[in-house]
Design a protein around this nucleic acid. Structure first.
Lengths: 211, 211
DNA sequence: CTGTTAAGTTTACAACGCTAAGCTATCAGC
DNA sequence: GCTGATAGCTTAGCGTTGTAAACTTAACAG
């Protein structure tokens, strides 16, 4: 009688030829789950991910260059939703300024709801590859969609004339500021909850831009 | 002839009785230097600090509960300057709104100049003890001084009536947003350099507050 | 049946944070 | 000047981490 396999490594059956990439997906799924459960990138160790998948640690490196790449891809995947959620929040709203407000609310809500991913992409320095900007931020249309939303406000004559790119940067800075400070200083005596806070501050900011 | 001491640990002479706490200062100094040089908290390992001081790693724990406490105290010390620098930036300026602008500029300049400390205190989740807020943010008057600067604008009739605390939070969020995004996404095609950026965005924001 | 190669595993290294226990120079008291 | 106590360290080591090099084995083409 063979000793019952301890909780150790090789529980997963080896993939068929050509189906190697399946492991990659399983690794991503396990890492995503672990990150969501623990809320801490340090808890998502290569060994923990390997254990969760049922494989040995070095196998991870057959599909990801290093831990940074793995974590980054997990967060990148989650952030594909952000653009969609902001678009959805804006959809069906006639007033372009109100649309912008809803975008802002959606952004903050998303950041708080995906706290660790947000931290990785916008707050850490580590756990982010060097080509992060080309890979995610710019190539994806997320930021450009914000610029377009600002342009709609300008076209509608709702804003005084100005550079849509600069205005968009200002709005991004503002909602990012709210999100990251709420994450970093949750016990600060905030004068209001997240939703009300973003409404008030975005309103204050937009008032300076109105025609 | 005794073998020349390898590069290893005990180069420092033991302190006299009663002068134990001197090591504490040397540790803080070495950790501060390492953090400034490497710009990375992971490079400031207990072993690296000990080596720099000329002492063995466990000695660190005679003066600091853990690495988090050490790093935090380094950053805390650096941040004692922030309040002073903002006050200095505002000093001698008659227009309270212009004073606020200068505060903002000083904040961003400080954050960029002390990047890793800024990251530790306002961007990370780890490397910060649980009582961080009581220990630094509120007890120090830094935030209150901002509220007072806002109050001066209100008193001067420069701002439309409003809650100074909310306005201060808005300004903090804005300058923090600028600082942390510049740190997190340095290769983003920012429409202007830090100085000009903070001027423009703070102006946009303040315009919404003016009377 | 055989050779090739994809898909893993075994083993191990160097560095990390941290702990428990031991050593030793310094000093107060005799 | 000697002695015991203790402040100020060190030695040794545990468990964990990311990762590299080398080995093994299952799956398929011919």
């Amino acid at each position: 009688m063979p000793a019952a396999r301890s909780s150790a490594s090789p529980r997963r059956a080896r993939a068929r030829r050509g189906e190697g990439p399946r492991l990659r997906e399983e690794i991503l799924a396990a890492a995503t789950r672990l990150l969501a459960e623990t809320g801490d990138t340090e808890a998502v160790s290569i060994r923990a991910v390997a254990e969760a998948v049922g494989v040995t640690p070095p196998s991870i490196y057959l599909h990801f260059a290093d831990k940074t790449e793995l974590i980054f891809e997990v967060c990148e995947e989650q952030f594909r939703q952000l653009d969609a959620e902001m678009a959805a929040a804006e959809a069906g709203v006639d007033d372009p300024v109100e649309g912008l407000r809803r975008r802002g609310r959606a952004y903050v809500r998303f950041g708080l709801g995906n706290a660790e991913a947000y931290r990785v992409l916008f707050m850490h320095k580590d756990h982010v590859p060097d080509d992060v900007d080309e890979r995610y931020l710019y190539r994806s249309g997320t930021f450009n969609h914000l610029v377009e939303a600002v342009q709609r406000c300008l076209d509608a004559g709702a804003f005084r004339p100005g550079d849509p790119l600069q205005i968009a940067v200002g709005l991004w800075v503002l909602v990012h500021g709210i999100t990251s400070l709420l994450l970093a200083a949750p016990t600060f005596p905030w004068p209001a909850g997240p939703e009300e806070l973003v409404d008030r501050l975005v309103d204050d900011h937009l008032r300076g831009l109105l025609a």
